[in-house]
Design a protein around this nucleic acid. Structure first.
Length: 250
DNA sequence: AATGCTTACAACCGCAATTCG
DNA sequence: CCGAATTGCGGTTGTAAGCAT
């Protein structure tokens, strides 16, 4: 499946400067993607996975180095409560940060603090035994089949094609962000996270605490009424993709 | 100075999802 | 429609650097 075994010798471990330069030149020349061709094009004895990872986590010019700011850490915590260990999605909302960066930072800096504070919270709760914890109704994300007639999704994809018509198959979730970044609107990185506009300019987001997600599960919560639930379950169109949450309330 | 421990982060691995022929 | 190839993600591991003893 992986096909890496076909190479008689594949280098592992830390990258040296020359390898970095070769990889950078290759990506600048051919663009990102087609990673299976990179070892051939560069002559590097590295597997495609290694090349991709090195570029995305280290060599890519847009990568932001240095300490995470307080704002970034705060946002990371909120997004983690919302998304769980979806590092790529979290990183997508932290400009210049890679999923690996976010994951490493979380595991080394935050995870311990959070888990210990959770313990404290739990023990505090347990002391006041009067409090009854109701189990949440967990709505697991369902697999989706996109028909070719799903115009909105098609348009989202179309938007993400560059001028030469080359396809970029990123999920629609990232499409808006990519598009905004392309337009050098880095300060609008958050757009895709809270709302989506359809082609008629209609904001299809829903306001205020529709639901929350914990540990990767979509959970019925607070103000989610029966009608909305019914709609979500019956409607196979846009509405069931929408999670509109005020991060600041998390 | 030598040794052991901890931390941070780069890199690897396995698997699921997606794309392609 | 199906299977192979490819991509991308998240968990885990390896190791260099920093620190304490």
């Amino acid at each position: 499946m992986e096909g890496e075994g076909s190479l008689s010798f594949v280098r592992k471990g830390a990258w040296n400067k020359m390898e970095d330069e070769l990889l950078t030149t290759c990506v600048q020349q051919y663009g990102e993607g087609k990673w299976h061709l990179v070892p051939i094009r560069t002559g590097l004895n590295r597997c495609r996975k290694s090349c991709r990872l090195r570029w995305l986590n280290y060599l890519k010019p847009s990568i932001k180095r240095g300490e995470f700011t307080e704002d970034e850490v705060d946002m990371m915590k909120r997004l983690h409560r919302l998304l769980g260990n979806r590092w790529s999605l979290i990183a997508g909302r932290l400009p210049g940060r890679t999923p690996n960066d976010v994951k490493n930072y979380w595991n080394t800096h935050i995870h311990k603090k959070v888990s210990s504070s959770h313990k404290e919270e739990y023990s505090t709760c347990a002391k006041s035994k009067k409090e009854i914890i109701k189990p949440h109704l967990v709505i697991k994300p369902q697999p989706r089949n996109f028909s070719t007639t799903n115009s909105t999704m098609l348009k989202m994809r179309f938007l993400n094609e560059d001028q030469s018509g080359a396809k970029n198959s990123q999920a629609c979730d990232d499409t808006l962000i990519t598009k905004y970044n392309d337009n050098n609107l880095d300060d609008k990185w958050w757009v895709g996270s809270t709302m989506m506009d359809d082609d008629k300019g209609c904001n299809v987001g829903v306001n205020n605490d529709l639901c929350c997600v914990q540990d990767g599960m979509l959970m019925k919560d607070l103000k989610l009424n029966d009608e909305i639930i019914k709609g979500l379950l019956e409607d196979q169109s846009w509405s069931d993709f929408l999670i509109d949450i005020n991060f600041l309330d998390l």
